[in-house]
């Protein structure tokens, strides 16, 4: 495993109370793997990765969790003394941008508007590799060409506002790639883009992962994006991973009612018939006041009494496929079939 996150919990202190954004979550990413993290707003899908990068906001805390990247421990939890925190910062500075690259959602705000692309691209290369400016520029031109920007030599001298949204996202990807990271975290990289541009960017991410052997964590809310691109998918709801598995396992052997609900809520335009949408009722829970037990229970059509008050355990179905739901408990089937017999 290139990246191994165990039992990560992240909390934020707000004036209204403590928000538990990520709760006891495990992630694993192998080298060269494309992993999708799917969830809706407030599911904690981005927070986990920001924590890994050490980019948590000031009011964030990490009570539990170990993070191991490429054999090194980079856990942000349990940093009590000042020396420990400084030591962690030093370790992270070497890894951040260098071994782990990051692509953000909004290409409009990530680039500094008053610096040329050349300046923004070579900066990171020079600080991390200690090469000359000429060499850095040469690398940067090569990168821009690789991400599909025409005339990279001359466009290097331009400012971000002279590029379209799609082109800016390409530049951000080029910056993320500039130091040959082992892992790239892409946080909703195409949400702000149009579909035709989205297709281009996704294809580029796929090519880079396949050709360079780079691992990618793709954070998204769009099941369509992960279906074609990801080897493995984790579905998150209210700070927990509710189901994970390969793309085929998630789509064709769906176990968790929330995953079912997500699949029922989308309409594939290429399917022949117009299928009825089966939405998930209700609204996502407030992270300030999560229900006891399973957070999805209030919206779940198949909720049982046990779901209220008892958090479900994780059940594994294969080496890759697991689900945290009481319905996976053997007793659920038994009781369900009994009630069905009695009612019919």
């Amino acid at each position: 495993m290139l990246l191994n996150i165990q039992d990560l919990t992240v909390e934020f202190t707000t004036p209204q109370g403590t928000v538990r954004a990520v709760r006891n979550v495990d992630y694993g990413v192998g080298a060269g793997e494309i992993v999708g993290v799917v969830g809706e707003s407030g599911s904690g899908k981005s927070v986990g990765m920001l924590t890994l990068m050490g980019l948590l906001a000031d009011n964030g805390r990490v009570p539990t969790g170990t993070i191991e990247f490429d054999g090194r421990d980079i856990s942000p939890s349990g940093l009590t003394s000042k020396a420990q925190r400084r030591d962690y910062e030093v370790r992270m500075r070497k890894i951040r941008g260098n071994e782990i690259g990051m692509i953000f959602q909004d290409p409009m705000t990530y680039l500094n508007p008053i610096l040329t692309i050349r300046r923004q691209m070579t900066e990171g290369i020079i600080t991390h590799t200690r090469c000359t400016e000429k060499e850095a520029e040469h690398i940067a031109v090569g990168l821009l060409g690789r991400v599909g920007i025409p005339n990279p030599q001359s466009r290097m001298r331009q400012y971000p506002f002279e590029f379209s949204g799609g082109m800016r996202q390409r530049i951000i990807i080029a910056i993320a790639l500039s130091l040959n990271p082992k892992l790239v975290i892409a946080d909703e990289p195409t949400t702000a883009l149009d579909v035709t541009v989205q297709a281009q960017i996704l294809e580029m991410i796929r090519k880079l992962a396949r050709e360079e052997g780079m691992a990618v964590v793709l954070i998204t809310h769009d099941l369509g994006v992960v279906a074609s691109l990801c080897d493995r998918i984790s579905i998150m709801y209210a700070g927990r991973i509710v189901e994970e598995g390969t793309a085929d396992e998630i789509f064709y052997d769906t176990r968790h009612p929330y995953t079912e609900g997500l699949l029922g809520s989308i309409n594939n335009h290429s399917t022949d018939a117009k299928k009825a949408l089966i939405p998930i009722p209700g609204s996502p829970p407030d992270l300030l006041k999560l229900p006891d037990g399973c957070a999805f229970a209030p919206r779940c059509a198949r909720a049982m009494r046990v779901c209220v008050g008892h958090a479900p355990a994780r059940t594994a179905f294969s080496e890759t496929h697991s689900c945290s739901c009481w319905l996976c408990d053997p007793r659920a089937n038994r009781v369900h079939s009994e009630t069905e017999v009695t009612t019919t």
């Binding site: 579909v195 989205q198 769009d222 369509g224 085929d248 789509f251």
Partner: peptide, 17 residues
């Protein structure tokens, strides 16, 4: 162009297309 750009939320068909 627009229709072919839309991601297909179905892994098998996405691979086949």
């Amino acid at each position: 162009l627009l229709l072919s750009s839309e991601p297909i939320a179905d892994p098998k068909r996405a691979r086949a297309t």
